[in-house]
Amino acid sequence: MAEQVIICKDLTKRFGDFMAVNKISFEVNRGEIFGFLGANGAGKTTAMRILCGLSYPTSGAATVAGFDVYKQQESIKRNIGYMSQKFSLYENLTVLENIEFYGGVYGLSRKTIRSRSDELINQLGLQQEARKLVGELPLGWKQKLAFSVAIFHQPQIVFLDEPTGGVDPVTRRQFWDMIYAAAASGITVFVTTHYMDEAEYCNRVTIMVDGKIEALDAPQALKARFQANNMEEVFYQLARGAKRSSD
């Protein structure tokens, strides 16, 4: 059995009477691409915030990279990467300065930053642009750079919150190639998305409805179980029963 890097047991977050996350339990294996799906307001973001060490659960237990979400938020933060839909690099800093900044924030030494950023720039083919301001790069490049920066400190897990929002299909495809490469190098990828075709790229997928996990399996198995042609149909069948519709 594979090593588990995220373990949730009856994880619950309650805001007053509202059960944002209602007793969810799941495990994520090392090196897995784990899709976290759900309509707006289903509780994805709340669950993800807990796993990222940004908020405390109301009850239940969870560990991320072996660290407890109640007591070891600092250690969790040190071992994860994060990228959101909002473009997260500084436009008036150059490519290199952005890399140096985020590397520095994660406490990497100057030497490590230098050698890894050389490597990264070569890998992305950004030698010409390394000293240009990020604001001058096309969106697709920015997005890829943002992902590279998110895993620059070589985290155990990277959380991607709708990372491909507003990106064209070609770039999205290239972006997923990068995700596969990261997973192959041993980084666990925890990704939320609205694109059901992207759900198909994941090793396993959970679908959250009204704060609960309604399904958790490989896309192939889910399609078989719900007798659906694609993930979109699976999603609709499950999400139809939702009572909450938005944040």
Partner: peptide, 13 residues
Amino acid sequence: ELGTMEILLVSPF
């Protein structure tokens, strides 16, 4: 506004 604050909050900083 840019969303970089989120990244900073998720970092160990």
